[in-house]
Design a protein around this nucleic acid. Sequence first.
DNA 1: CCGCGTTCAAAACATACGTTTCAAACATAC
DNA 2: GTATGTTTGAAACGTATGTTTTGAACGCGG
Lengths: 210, 210
Amino acid sequence: MAQPGTVDRILDTAEVLFAQKGFAETSLRAITSKAGVNLAAVNYHFGSKEALIQAVFERFLSPFSEALNAKLAEMEASGTPDTPENLLALISRLALGTHPEDPRRAAIFFRLSGQAYSQPVGHLREYLHKQYGAVFSRLQEHMQRALPDMPPRELFWRVQFGLGAAIFTLSGMESLKEISRSDFNMEATEADITGRLLPFLIGGITAPMP
Amino acid sequence: MAQPGTVDRILDTAEVLFAQKGFAETSLRAITSKAGVNLAAVNYHFGSKEALIQAVFERFLSPFSEALNAKLAEMEASGTPDTPENLLALISRLALGTHPEDPRRAAIFFRLSGQAYSQPVGHLREYLHKQYGAVFSRLQEHMQRALPDMPPRELFWRVQFGLGAAIFTLSGMESLKEISRSDFNMEATEADITGRLLPFLIGGITAPMP
DNA sequence: CCGCGTTCAAAACATACGTTTCAAACATAC
DNA sequence: GTATGTTTGAAACGTATGTTTTGAACGCGG
């Protein structure tokens, strides 16, 4: 492994370009030339482009997943009550703050998630489900405890809807900011949008059953 | 123009493949060979691959956009009150029923929308905004009339959140159906999911202000 | 200082892509 | 029936991609 070197420079550059332009549209040459490393370095260190993509996601999601697990355990230990407000605020804080050294990485995080989710059949989606399905299930259980009267199947779909609203909106934040700027003369920040998002999610998830 | 021929066979095949695997991942050779037409036919009839993509969207969105416009005009004329319920039910019915000849096309419609939205910078997103921004604005005005006490900027974001929830969920419906099948032994249908989606959207959009 | 495993650099490779070319087939009007 | 404009077919073009190869450079323990 290289010290503060090639591997990390590739990952740093790749995550930015993947988030900006997508996986298929980002060539290894674009990554390596911008990262200032040799083209062959990707295949040498990672094996293939697809392995690079997975490595980018692992570096992103592992800290998030671990932090979420830790915070949930903390909640359980301290007896903090399970409420939609608590759970969603927790996730929101985590998503925005998992990488405090660079706030821009939150935006990259969202865009990568959107790319992964809207990706076709690809190995990526099942890799994510296999790798991080456990923490998602745990979250779902907490949400179920917060809303004991809601049928699990209904809750499952509502969480999916909420996930969609969040990822989709935050992933397209750049464009939406521009629209909101031209239509409302309003500058919108990440924190501003997530602040508006939370009441929406709570309202949707706790909406009365049909 | 070809009669019941080449052009439509290309569009029919392209929309399926684009929805399944994305734009960049679908080659013209894959389209033309599956459609049973010559490779050069795409460039001959459409000019380029990008023009093909736009043509696919135009064939999808124009009927939808026109139908929505017509229904909104109908509402205005008949004095039907603007309520979130009415408006969202209207859109839902339209999205599921714009192409009644083939219900599978609703799924394709959602997947294409998801692809377009999560697409990078590409010309597609601004093309869609330029082409269909008007009908979206009109819808937004109706929603504003339904919720006169909500600040327009707040409403803008809430509509975006709802759009995200809808497109994102419906676009990933195939995978989500499978998860719901394995986790809940539950068969989910399009109508089932949209039936659950509407209360969520209404709850989110009408949630109390923070 | 030497030997060896690791990393890097430059070039080449094979392939897939979008696009273009050009002649043949076709349809239509005169 | 011939001429004209349109559509199709097969092949080629140029380019960009992911990957592989081959040595050189480097770091380090003996």
